[in-house]
Simulated assay, not measured.
Amino acid sequence: MKFFVIFSCMVAVALCAPTSSVRELPAVRHEEVHDEYGQYALRYITAENTVVSERGRLVPSKDGGYVLEIDGQYQFVGDDGHVYVTKYKGDADGFHVDGAHLPQQVPMPTV
């Protein structure tokens, strides 16, 4: 449930981004694998060398069930020519983001 709420918020923020700054070059390489349990791995690279990779896997939860844990990263070349790398993870402890370019590392509270 936490994953769904956090993921929904991330999608909402992405959809609210101004379209004038969105780069619309297609993926030149795209790999994606899914299994029957909902676990997945994906990776794609755009024409401007943005690289995104993500993995979702089922892990046992404290209540005896399973929860989908995600981890991934994306990197891109900024307008200033620097490469920016952001790593993220969503698990039973909440959603965590790490990147040297981020101004402040504040943990998100768990729901």
Rank of each mutant, 00 (worst) to 15 (best):
D71L: 00
D71E: 02
V67E: 08
G90I: 03
F4R: 13
V28T: 10
S53G: 08
Q75K: 07
V97G: 00
E54Q: 04
G94K: 04
L42K: 11
M10A: 12
S53Q: 12
A17R: 15
F7Y: 14
E48A: 07
A17T: 10
T19M: 11
Q73W: 07
P60I: 00
A27F: 13
A27T: 09
D35C: 05
E54L: 03
G64P: 01
V33K: 10
G99S: 01
V22K: 15
V85I: 12
H34W: 10
V111F: 15
T110P: 09
D98H: 15
E31T: 05
G65Y: 00
V51N: 02
L15F: 13
R29M: 15
V97A: 05
E31W: 06
Y88M: 06
E36I: 05
Y74V: 04
C9A: 14
E32I: 08
K62L: 13
R55E: 02
E48R: 08
E36K: 09
S61R: 12
R57E: 07
V51G: 05
S8I: 03
C9I: 13
R43V: 00
M10C: 14
V33A: 08
K87C: 08
E54F: 03
G56Q: 04
Y88R: 05
E24Q: 15
F76T: 02
C9S: 13
D71T: 00
D91W: 15
C16P: 03
G94E: 02
T46A: 09
H96S: 08
H96E: 05
Y44T: 02
H34S: 04
N49R: 08
D35L: 03
F95M: 10
T46S: 11
A41C: 04
E69R: 06
F7L: 14
K89G: 07
V13A: 15
V106M: 05
G72Q: 01
R29K: 14
R29C: 12
D93N: 14
L102A: 01
S20G: 12
M1E: 05
R43L: 01
V22L: 15
S20I: 13
K2L: 04
R43A: 02
S21R: 11
G99D: 03
F76L: 08
V85A: 12
V67R: 12
V83C: 08
Q73V: 00
K2Q: 07
V77P: 09
I45H: 10
D91T: 08
R57C: 06
K89D: 06
Q104I: 07
H101T: 06
V51H: 06
S21L: 09
A17D: 01
H96W: 09
M1P: 09
